[in-house]
Write a protein that binds this DNA or RNA. Sequence first.
DNA 1: GCAATAACGAACAAATTTGTTAGTCTAAAA
DNA 2: TTTTAGACTAACAAATTTGTTCGTTATTGC
Lengths: 141, 141
Amino acid sequence: MRKEHSTNAMNEQFLFGVCELNSAISVISGRWKSQIVYSVSQGNNRFHLLKKELPNISEQVLGRQLKELETHAILVKKEIAGTVPIGIEYILTNKGLDLVPILESLCNWGKAYEGKEISACGNIFSRKGAKRQRSEDKSEC
Amino acid sequence: MRKEHSTNAMNEQFLFGVCELNSAISVISGRWKSQIVYSVSQGNNRFHLLKKELPNISEQVLGRQLKELETHAILVKKEIAGTVPIGIEYILTNKGLDLVPILESLCNWGKAYEGKEISACGNIFSRKGAKRQRSEDKSEC
DNA sequence: GCAATAACGAACAAATTTGTTAGTCTAAAA
DNA sequence: TTTTAGACTAACAAATTTGTTCGTTATTGC
C-alpha cells in the first residue's frame, strides 16, 4: 500500500506538478510494462500470447501489470464475442496508440548508443557540425 | 547492492535483451532523473542551481542521481576553469542531448491525455478519421 | 576563529516494487 | 472424473529504490 504522506510519495507528487513528463514516465516505467504495450501493439493482444512472448513473467505479475496499464487508460479489455469460456483481448486506447511511436524513438535512441555506457565521453563537443548518422533504423524493436 | 542472480535482476536482463527500449527506459526512470536531464538542458547545470529548482531533493540524493546519469553517459562533469574552490558544471553528452526531444514528446503525450486516467475509454475507436487536436503545444515543460 | 557555501560519499533505514504461493471459475478433453 | 487452458485476485516475502544522518574538503565572509 502507498503511504500517501511519505517523503517519497510527496516528492513524486511534486514532480508530477512540475511537468507531465514525470507522470508520463511513471506510467511506463514498471518492469515489463512498455514491453507489454509494444507487444500488444504488434498483435500479441491476448493473455496467453503475452505469456508466450515473455516466458519469464508469472501470470500473477502479468495480470497486475495489465491492470495497471488499464488504470492508466493505456489499454482496455474487451471480451471476444461468441467464445466459451469468454476470451479476452487487450486493445490499446488512443492514449496507448500515441505512446507507441515514442517508445520506438526510445528504442532507437537506446540502440544508437548501445554499449557506450561510461565510455562515450570522448569529445562531448564532437556533435558540433557532425552529421548524425543513425544507420538505417531498422526498428526490430 | 544488486543481487545479480535474483529473479528480478534476471528478468531485467531478459528484457534488456528483448529490446533496447527496456534498457532505455530503465536509464531514465529513476525518481528526479528525467527532470534533472531536462533542467540541465535548460541551463540549470550546476549542483546548487538544481537544488534551487528541486527544493525537495536532498543533496545526497541529487548527487547520487547525477552520478547515475554520468554512469549512463547522459551527462559529464566539467570543472569550471579559474574558480576557487573549483566549481563544477554538468554538461549533456550527445546521448543526453538526443534524449531531450524524446522527453519533450513524452511530456506532450502526458499533457494531451492529462486527467484522463480511468475514464478515457469512451469509444476507443473514436480515433478513426478524427483529427487529432493537440491544442498548441506550448511545451512549458 | 567560526559559520557558510559548493559538492559530494558511506551506511543505514523506510518505502515501494517485483516475485511467489495458494486459490478461483468455466468448460472442454482424456 | 481428473486434468488442462485461459484469466485472473489476494496476501505475503524478497529485492530494490529512495530518503536520512553524519562526515569531508577548501575557501571566503564576518
